[in-house]
Design a protein around this nucleic acid. Structure first.
Lengths: 303, 303
DNA sequence: GCCGCTTACGGAAAACGTAATAATC
DNA sequence: GATTATTACGTTTTCCGTAAGCGGC
């Protein structure tokens, strides 16, 4: 909105030093000096008297700095007004995020080419108390969209779905476990040796995709399956501490520093879709948001 | 002072077309479009609605354009004020210029690195009526400095001199004359053949440098010297029309489109100095101007 | 067919950072 | 010795123009 060199001039006037001003603005000193010099030469004015021990504004320069401050202030106000004007009447898209469902991939896509007409607001989701199903069932009330792994056929009646990638089930392994250094895991690798059974935590049977993995793992004598009700942060903490393995997904890479996700060579594809869940009857701005994300991800959105 | 992209935004709003705006601002259409796009994305706002047949400002965009106009107006006023403040109290340096004494070399040096504290004002000098000597004798009254060829020893008592280059006498030849295509001329080349004598116009003997050239040329039987009192535009016109040669100097390159200056291999150096003449007791700003020009030309100024 | 907006790509210009110099406290 | 302004130089980034594609009048 305004010439960036004004920042350099103002900082130099306030600090009385090109070096100090350059540090404040996080640029090198010669770069800032050049900004000031080119500015002065471009407009044929002298703002600063230089000396070996700093710089001081000229009499006229001091008044100029005041004017420059005014320009900067007004410019900021103008763009703030502009933003406000554009946003009045159009409510934001409230995107739910949490440690277990950080919408990182979605936000990466969004900030690559955001549509300025749509404002995205991040709202916190609990990872523990409220089951994710409840949140999804009430999309459009407090939260408009969530990014998660899901089975599309499960939600077609409840909400809209925008799958943007495939999310194969993998295994979260503690860094102390030699398995964590394998590039991939086969089922044989999971079978316990020497009488010790490998403990694997897995969602208890409830008709979802995880049941396929459970069927495959139950055939292994050296595997002890430990049922879990739902995923939460405490589950990751426990697995990190006990060394138990955990059925995981790529979207949870890096959730716990002690656990690494290792791909598993399942005999047949075992995985879910990853993408956005949004209200079955979305508001216009939500629909626009979903469509833009779909376009950026290179997929078509489904009603 | 302000972001140059504002000009693009305003022009686009006024013309209703990126293409028309680009023509007004003398840039290519894609360049202007990119300016608008990067601006909008940088601040996350939408100023224009695009269509295949032009662009129209958004409701909020139209108000933004008004604000932008205000910023541009204020910025211009601020730098104008700054200039006025800096100049009050310091009178300008009045540099005399005319067709025969265009201070081109001086102005090139000056605009390469002008001192913003010194304001240079160009004032017109007559080439015909008033002899240059009168102007030089009155330096500091209406005109503070002139750029011309001169013999330093002639003026040491009258005014200050700043020689910045050597100006060898050369020959102005009409383009129709085969001599005009020679890279250099020897005295033999000037000697007339077949009974026709080469007419050469030269300053009448008055104790100056030109007398040396006159001495050399008078020995040539095939040369007819035609005396002139002083140099003026009409003299160049006459030589162009009659085909007479004219003792000239490099500083007059391009004064008359029909005449070209060709260097002459004089048996011994025949030339003058080129530079600035200024008052013997110059005002501070004049002294500063002369010193700056001397520094830019790489010579030391002489009192 | 012409004129508008948009995208892609190559080259020119500007900006920056590092390093080195000189002067000051 | 530490800090300052300034210069020089190589590198990176930005900017612009040309060319081409695409859609509307």
């Amino acid at each position: 909105m305004y010439d960036r060199r004004l920042d350099a001039l103002i900082a130099a006037a306030e600090t009385g030093s090109f070096a100090a001003a350059s540090r404040r603005l996080h640029v090198s000193t010669p770069a800032l000096v050049k900004q000031v010099n080119t500015f002065e030469r471009e407009y044929g004015i002298t703002v600063f008297d230089r000396s070996r021990s700093g710089v001081t504004p000229t009499a006229a320069g001091a008044e100029f700095i005041e004017d420059a401050r005014s320009i900067v202030r007004q410019s900021n106000e103008i763009i703030a007004r502009m933003r406000r004007r554009a946003h009045t009447g159009t409510p934001p898209v409230r995107l739910g995020i949490s440690m277990l469902r950080p919408a990182r991939r979605i936000l990466d896509l969004w900030q690559r080419e955001a549509d300025p007409r749509i404002r995205v607001e991040l709202v916190s989701m609990p990872d523990d108390e409220v089951p994710i199903d409840d949140i999804i069932a009430h999309l459009g009330e407090d939260i408009d969209a969530v990014a998660t792994a899901f089975a599309p056929e499960h939600w077609t009646e409840v909400c809209g779905t925008l799958p943007i990638s495939y999310e194969p089930l993998c295994m979260a392994v503690s860094r102390g476990n030699p398995l964590s250094r394998r590039p991939r895991l086969r089922l044989d690798d999971l079978d316990g040796r020497d009488g010790t059974r490998t403990r694997i935590r897995i969602l208890r049977r409830c008709g979802g995709t995880d049941d396929i993995a459970r069927d495959l793992l139950e055939r292994l004598a050296g595997v002890e399956l430990v049922d879990i009700d739902h995923y939460d942060l405490n589950l990751f903490n426990e697995c990190a501490e006990t060394g138990d393995l955990l059925i995981s997904k790529p979207m949870w890479d890096g959730v716990h520093p002690q656990l690494v996700n290792v791909p598993v060579d399942w005999p047949r594809p075992v995985g879910m879709r990853y993408g956005l869940l949004y209200p079955a009857d979305p508001e216009p701005q939500i629909r626009a948001f979903v469509e833009r994300i779909g376009a950026l991800a290179g997929v078509a959105s489904e009603p």
